[in-house]
Each structure stands twice: as C-alpha cells, then as structure tokens.
Amino acid sequence: MAKSEPRSNAFQARAIALLWRSLAGRRLSTLWRLARLIGPLVERLSRRERHITRANLVEVYPSRSPSECSQLVRQSLTHSAATMLELGFAWMGDPERVESSILEVHGRELLDDARAERRGVIVLAPHFGNWEVLNFWLSGHFPFTAMYEPPKLAPLDPIIRQGRERRGGNLVPTNPRGVAALLKALKRSEAVGILPDQEPDWGSGVFAPFFGRLAYTATLLPKLVARTQARVVTGVALRLPGRGYAIHFLAADARVYDPDETTSASGVNASVESAIALDPAQYQWEYKRYRKTPEEAEGHPDFKRFRIY
C-alpha cells in the first residue's frame, strides 16, 4: 500500500502536467468556451462546490434575489474552471503570448512611485481572475518574491515552481525563513506578494470583518509594514473572457498601515472587497472563508491570542 500511493501520485501528476501542456498553446477564446461548458457541469455534479459557493454568495450579497444568486453561482464556477484551464497557459505558454494577452495595466504608478521613493511594495493578491497571470506580469516587470506552499501532489512541485519562477520571480516557503526573505526583499525596495484571503493557522491571525461577517485573517501584513514602511496595493488580473486580461493595482485601504493588528486586518479585508467589486463573479467563492469562528476560538487553549474586531 505504501508503495502504490507514490505510484498513484506520480501517475496523477503526469496526467495533470500533460493536460496543462496540451492546453498551454490553445487560444484563450477556446479555453473560455471550454470553461463555459465545464462551469455548469461543476454546478450540477459537484455538490460541495455548488453548496459552498452559494452559501458564501448568500452571506455576502443578502439583497440579491435567488435567481440572481443562482446566476452568480454559475458565473463564478465558470470563471474558476477558466482559471484551472489557463494554468498551462500561464506557466508553460510562450512568454510573448502570455505578455501580449495582458491588454491593460491600471495603477502601475502605485508600484513605480513606491520604488522611486525607495520603498518596497506589498501586493495583496486575492484569488480573483487569474492570479497566475498577475504573478507572471509582476515577475517580469519588478524584482518579485512570493510565498509558496508545495502542492499535495509532490511530483507537481517542480513543474509549478518552474512555471512561477520562469520570469525571474523568487518563491519562498510559508515559514519563518520565508518571512525573513520577504523582509529582506522589501528592504531592498522590491515587490512581494501575499495571499490575503486564506485562513491562517490558529495563532497567526485575528477576527476581522469580511463583507460584514467576522473572518479569521492573517496578521503577517502589519508585521511587514511595521518593519519596512512598505507601500501596500491590491493586485488582480481581471479576465476579459476569451480575449485576455486587464491588470489592476488598487491603493489599499488606509487601515492596513495601522499598527494594531486587528485594525490592519480589517483594512486587508476591505481591500479585497474593493478588488472583488470589479467583477464579483471572478472571485473564487468556493473557498471556505468563514471556516474558523470566534465561538471555536473561545474553546482553544490559545484563545487570548485571538483578538476580535
């Protein structure tokens, strides 16, 4: 049994890598047509994805009618399917093709001005649109470092790593050594990327509002800002279905610079909300953002560390 599992993992990894390579050269219009076929199938056949997406959308958009919510569920799952289909394009596609697919870049001056002032830039990159295309662009235009957690299928690790680093980006582990690398990059006035919408481990976050409901939010950002005086922006690669992408950099909510971790986390969540407002269907709503609760924290031995806004 112990030997068959690695073989199974290797087979799955080869099959996934082959799929990525086969899709890498396809037109974005073709990938979008495929996504429009797959999205409704996921909605119909995957109870988990459908349930989590709908539950999140009902929570954050309570004023929307049931029919509007159903339409947004389908649109969201279609965009998520498109992101999966576009991974090969972002990681293995011809670099000139990927660069030319980025049709618009808005807010670049936020990064350029920070570097001119010899300040580092922290890019909050939520799971919106195609964040791998955002990584591609950042790595090709700025010295860029991002945290990276290896995939569960270990044989895919070198493939993903090569795809994310092929434009010069630097990946660091999600541990204290990685945090130290981010600090060094910021002190060199470089750009670093942080995923602001993943639930951290207990003890590494605080509860702060996200669309009006408390969500357990990482506190890495205020620590980095306090030690580097970096500028914070939100970055997304908005999908222009079948045509390409529009990259948007948005000034972060002013609260992200507050030394109080809970206030800063509230600013992070507000910044993510502003990015989602560009097109709510392009956010990855199938992630359980509200999994950890204040009630669960009360029973945790480290409860005193979990501050609530």
Rank of each mutant, 00 (worst) to 15 (best):
M92L: 15
S80M: 15
E165W: 05
T293P: 06
F136C: 05
A125W: 00
V121T: 15
R118P: 06
R50I: 06
L214A: 15
P259E: 02
S139K: 09
R255K: 15
L238C: 11
A191G: 11
E117C: 13
F142G: 12
S80H: 14
R21V: 02
Q162G: 15
R161T: 11
W137V: 06
T263H: 02
D157Q: 12
A251Q: 15
E190L: 06
E298D: 12
V172K: 10
A114L: 06
P200M: 00
Q71A: 11
L138A: 14
G39E: 10
R307H: 08
W285L: 08
F211Y: 14
A230S: 15
S4Q: 15
E273W: 05
E99S: 13
I122S: 09
R119Y: 08
R164T: 04
Y257I: 02
L138N: 09
E149Q: 14
S274A: 15
P155N: 02
G242D: 05
A281R: 00
E96L: 13
R167A: 10
V121L: 12
S100W: 06
N130W: 05
L138P: 07
V236W: 07
F128N: 05
E165P: 09
V256I: 07
R115W: 13
L111D: 04
A270F: 06
L224K: 02
G163A: 03
I159C: 04
